[in-house]
Design a protein around this nucleic acid. Structure first.
Lengths: 235, 235
DNA sequence: GGTTTCTCGTAACGACGCTATGACGTACGT
DNA sequence: ACGTACGTCATAGCGTCGTTACGAGAAACC
């Protein structure tokens, strides 16, 4: 019978159901069955309620995450942290938008908490000799890119269609900040075949050639296959 | 005495001055000196006005950018595009938030336009042999990271204090998508088509591919034809 | 049991997005 | 020249919002 928790959950439910991602204080009060002054005694004002919703959702999410976090491989934890960030955004799009693009001035404390946890993982990476730069600088770069990927996926799902978008951006950022485990580490092999195929395809699409139309189409099809031998592009 | 333009500029000014980044239709109408029905005849509703503000600000910004864009070095254009994106966000924080984290359902067309321009630059990079993957996939990754950096800088300037944040994330993403200049990039200026065809033919003769034997032979024959300088050359 | 205090629902206030109505000016027909 | 039809736009209003003053009812204390 915790009224505060009831209101938080009602607000989150209404928020996810709302098309314009906004709610009215009246709807929240009516859903719980309390009067309007109750809301203002508990949360101060509407922004306080929304901030509390963000903190509540994020805290509950972190509870399941914090239990298994400190593993032996800090780099694996780093990547897992990125993925859980994106998963949280997909699971609670409205809450995520309030978290990282709030309409009020003060950023919810959950955002600060998330950055703090990221910095802790990075400190462990540094202790393991895997971090190339200062943990605070690395945390800012990773978090900024992570927010961008998550926000793009939740606010423009029709535009950002690449299923590997998150992991690819993640690895690009991480690779720029971490030192490889060994010298034989996969030094980004500049595979000449896909590169050459991509370039020829690009040129073929922009310049006239001596080939016929069907020949060009078949050639382009082959080139696409040569450029992406292991994965398929989204249509 | 263009009322529509007056209202757009008044709305933008009020938007930047507002602490909670919201405006009232009444304030916009009063600032221009027109009645409320004028706004609804010009923009439909409040969302229409805000969408128009976004498109107007972005179009005016692109006008100064499009003039000097197509340079000889597409990679330099790519990096400049990232920087102008961040600069636009810093110059118009309220408009930028509406653009990439809108409160209404449909994303403003300016966001689509920005992604389209990015893809065009990437196609030019691919034609120069500098792009490692498909232009569409690369555009999504770059744009997602770019949005994250810009939105973090404008919505949490107190948290993201690293002055090099933007350029560092930019270079990390770009390095993961581009091939270095010296490696296997033939000179674009002279004859891109024969060069690309020759390079691919050389690679095909030294590496196993996913194509069958007959296909490879036919492809090599075509490539020899494309590489031969007997075909028409641009004056 | 009477008084005080605490709690919380009712009702109201100002501001909002949006729209119906009517006044005003203009162009046209006779 | 004068009446009429038409387009234009401000006034005024409706319903809803966030927020708060007020009063009723319950509980606690002397």
């Amino acid at each position: 019978m915790d009224v505060r928790l009831q209101m938080l959950e009602a607000a989150e439910k209404l928020l996810d159901a709302s098309p314009d991602r906004d709610i009215s204080t009246r709807a929240v009060c009516e859903a719980v069955g309390v009067g309007a002054p109750m809301l203002y005694r508990l949360f101060g004002d509407k922004n306080g309620l929304l901030s509390a919703v963000v903190d509540h959702g994020f805290d509950r999410y972190l509870a399941t995450k914090r239990a298994a976090e400190p593993s032996a491989d800090p780099v694996a934890d780093l990547k897992a942290g990125w993925d859980t960030h994106v998963a949280f955004a997909k699971a609670h799009p409205a809450v995520y938008r309030l978290m990282y693009s709030p309409s009020f001035v003060d950023v919810p404390s959950a955002a600060q908490e998330a950055l703090r946890l990221l910095r802790e993982v990075l400190v462990r990476c540094a202790a393991a000799g895997r971090l190339r730069i200062d943990a605070e600088l690395a945390a800012q770069r990773i978090m900024a890119a992570n927010i961008g990927v998550a926000l793009s996926l939740v606010s423009q799902p029709g535009t950002y269609t690449d299923p590997d978008l998150s992991t690819r951006v993640r690895d690009a950022i991480h690779d720029s900040l971490l030192v490889p485990v060994g010298k034989n580490a996969p030094k980004r092999a500049d595979a000449p075949l896909p590169g050459a195929a991509l370039q020829l395809a690009a040129v073929l699409r922009t310049e006239p050639t001596s080939l016929g139309e069907q020949e060009t189409q078949l050639l382009l099809k082959w080139l696409d296959g040569l450029a992406a031998p292991s994965s398929k592009r989204p249509g």
